[in-house]
């Protein structure tokens, strides 16, 4: 088991290195291959009135005139040893290790920004995940047990709507009805840190949680329903019933446990992806998390920020994958072979 985990951990590190290289190449190599000069890249990071000399000076400052492999080497070096950026001003700007990049627009290290916004995204993802897991699985189980009933049809219709309706629609609708018309929940961009006021934290996030959970719960309900229907027809369920076990025990202890295996696999990956930034939900509710940070970075062409978010998101996905792999190995020893 230890060897298995070690192998997976090494693979995860390799994947992260590959992701960092590919992302870096997309931002800094591909434009060069397409004919953009170092000065062209730098022209995004000067004022609109900058002359050629100033643009070139900026290109040199940002390292765009170096070969791309040197730039990547500097980037990797910064992760382990930190970097200094001389962008004019009274003193060079220092980006301490682990330096995930330095924003050319804000002229700030990227990592502190990411860490500052991570709690918002974690709060959103964790709360929504809890809601969608409980509601999705619960509805899925009930639908399977009451197959063909009005409840089943209604639940699956709602599930279909949940999958089909984008967050920016349901979110704005929720805000319009519950915040601006009924005044029940706070308006967009409301966020209180958990440690500051847990009740207010939850109150602020209820609408985003429910909106995001609605999207995911639908899929989980359908997945659980299908799994339960399949499992309930298995021989061992019939055997359990024949042995006289109460239906509650048959469903919860035997059928549901089996059904949950694929659900939990997907749950791990979904959660990992979400921590990388629930872009639409955060943008719709104007939450200052990693998702909205990414949107801002893209709209400002602030490539180091995008690179930083990408790496962070990849890290969470890889970790989630690793955890799922390990859990699978625990459940099914054949995976370790």
């Amino acid at each position: 088991m230890t060897a298995f985990i070690a192998r997976r951990a090494v693979a995860a590190v390799v994947i992260l290195a590959l992701v960092s290289f590919i992302t870096f190449a997309i931002f800094f190599l591909v434009p060069r291959l397409a004919g953009a000069s170092a000065d062209d890249l730098a022209s995004r990071y000067v004022g609109k009135t900058a002359g050629a000399e100033q643009v070139h000076e900026r290109a040199v400052q940002l390292g765009f005139t170096d070969p791309v492999y040197v730039q990547y080497g500097d980037f990797v070096k910064g992760i382990f040893a930190g970097r200094d950026y001389d962008l004019g001003g009274p003193a060079p700007e220092h980006c301490p290790a682990p330096c995930l990049g330095f924003s050319f627009i804000d002229q700030n290290p990227v990592l502190p920004d990411l860490l500052d916004r991570l709690p918002v995204t974690l709060s959103l993802a964790a709360g929504a995940a809890l809601i969608w897991l409980i509601s999705g699985v619960g509805v899925g189980v009930l639908s399977a047990l009451r197959r063909g009933t009005v409840f089943d049809r209604a639940a699956m219709a709602v599930a279909l709507a949940g999958v089909s309706l984008p967050v920016f629609f349901t979110g704005l609708l929720a805000l319009s009805v519950f915040s601006y018309t009924l005044n029940i929940f706070p308006p967009g961009s409301s966020y209180t840190p958990l440690l500051e006021n847990p009740i207010q934290w939850a109150y602020d996030l209820i609408l985003p949680w429910v909106t995001l959970a609605f999207l995911y719960a639908a899929g989980y309900a359908r997945l659980t329903r299908a799994g339960m229907l399949e499992t309930m027809n298995e021989d061992y369920i019939r055997t359990a019933r024949a042995k006289g076990l109460p239906e509650r025990t048959v469903v919860l202890k035997h059928a549901l446990r089996s059904t949950l295996t694929p659900v939990l696999t997907i749950f791990g990956l979904d959660l990992g992806l979400l921590v990388g930034g629930a872009i639409l939900t955060e943008s719709t509710f104007s939450l200052p998390g990693l998702g909205s940070y990414t949107v801002q970075a893209i709209s400002h062409n602030d490539l180091p920020k995008v690179l930083g978010v990408t790496l962070l998101a990849a890290t969470f996905v890889v970790i989630a994958n690793l955890v799922v792999d390990i859990l699978y190995a625990v459940i099914d020893p054949r995976v370790r072979l």
Binding site: L172, L175, Y180, P187, T284, S286
Partner: peptide, 12 residues
């Protein structure tokens, strides 16, 4: 407040 959804701004 910065970076607020445009539609949200209008509604508010």
């Amino acid at each position: 407040t910065l970076n607020v959804n445009k539609d949200d701004i209008d509604q508010r």
